[in-house]
Amino acid sequence: MHRYILNRLLLSIPTLIGAAALVFLLMRLIPGDICMVRLGGSGGTVSASALAACHAQIGLERSLPLQFLDFIGGFAIGDFGTSMWSGKPVVQEIASRLPVSLEIALLATIVAVAIAIPLGTISALKQNSWLDHVVRTVAIAGIATPSFWLGILSILIVLDVSHYLLGSPWMPSIDYVPLWDDPWGNLSIVILPAITIGYRYSAVTMRMTRSAMLEVLREDYIRTARAKGLVEQLIINRHALKNAMLPVVTLIGMEFAFLIGGLVVTEQVFNLNGIGRLFVLAVQNQDYTLTQALVMLTVAVFVVTNLVVDVLYAWLDPRIRFG
């Protein structure tokens, strides 16, 4: 077990280096650079001398291999550098945005699991009934709807409904407050984005739960259990659900990493100052250090989540041995 984990961690090193090289090159292939965005972004005069001064200040005049070594070396010793845009340490930039994103991601996962697992199970048990069809339709609709559309419409609905009920339109604050400062205010801010993301997430999970359940229900041991006359409830709880959870856990883990993508759009819609918005900003400002750090963070989270999922998988299903 320990050897397996160690092995997996070693295997992740080439992945990390490869991702580092990819983001490094990709960012530098984008025409223009941060100095141009900064000096010319509002249509001001960009003089050659100001551009050169900006390049020197940021360190863009150095050779590419040198910049890459600097990036990789810094990463290896835990030094992520400073944001080229704000001049603040990257760690600080990310740390100030992480709480809101984590909160939404977590809440969305809870929403998703709470909806998906019971509904997915019911859907499988009542396969091809009208209930199954309704659940599946709702689930697929969740996957099919563009999330920004859902987000924009959901704010409008809140505005219209509150206008109708209270006489004046209400919406959550657009100025984030931390959970520990104002729990109610905080919750009102994060709940809509969490539901928006959670709906899609639950849809994916629900479908997976359903098909995993269906598969398990056809296994011999369930048939045996049924033949032995065990109570249906017991069969589902003790045998079927537990085994069906394997692929579902995998999916939840994988989707958690993919949440970053969902956050990119949703955070813009709800004006949340989180990692997703920072990501878009970093790419559009051509802030190399910040983008690199964010990509490495995402990749690292992905690698770790995958590992945790695999370990969990084995723990849930003793038939799997680590090779």
């Binding site: 990709l26 990493a257 993508g261």
Partner: peptide, 16 residues
């Protein structure tokens, strides 16, 4: 690497 790379960021970069 491609799996772990944030999709939307890759897409943004390609379009940029």
């Amino acid at each position: 690497i491609l799996m772990a790379f944030p999709l939307i960021i890759m897409a943004l970069a390609v379009v940029a």
